[in-house]
Simulated scan of single mutants.
Amino acid sequence: MASCLQSIGARCRIVLIKGHAYPELYCGSKEDFEIMKQAIITLFPHPPVKEIYYHEMKGEYWINLDYTARRPGGPYMNDKVYALIEL
């Protein structure tokens, strides 16, 4: 997934947790993240999105793209992060 996104110019990273790794997509600032959040809510109405899972570091927003979730920004399998690998 990260390779596909990078091929169209997206900034991604890999998050390592115990027994699993998943990509996160860089969303930009809080304002940019809010735009992406509204797009997810609109594009994935069933079931209704109640929460978007993301990480914020130094004003940069990263959204969860773990394939175990049913949509972008879905729940994390585990929130204990061992490492972040910038691509």
Rank of each mutant, 00 (worst) to 15 (best):
M1N: 06
S3I: 08
L5C: 04
I8C: 08
I8H: 08
G9A: 07
C12W: 00
C12V: 15
I14D: 07
V15E: 06
L16E: 15
K18E: 14
H20M: 09
A21C: 10
Y26C: 08
S29C: 04
S29I: 06
S29A: 05
S29F: 07
F33G: 01
K37S: 12
Q38D: 13
Q38S: 13
Q38A: 14
A39H: 08
A39D: 14
T42C: 06
T42A: 14
F44T: 02
H46L: 07
H46I: 13
H46V: 13
P48H: 04
K50Q: 12
Y53V: 00
Y53Q: 06
H55I: 15
E56A: 12
E56Q: 13
K58V: 08
G59W: 11
E60Q: 13
W62G: 02
W62R: 04
I63F: 02
N64C: 14
L65G: 02
L65N: 04
T68S: 13
R70M: 10
R71F: 11
R71A: 07
R71C: 01
P72E: 07
G73E: 05
G73C: 08
G74L: 07
P75W: 00
P75L: 00
M77S: 11
N78E: 14
K80T: 12
K80L: 09
V81I: 15
Y82M: 15
L87A: 07
L87M: 12
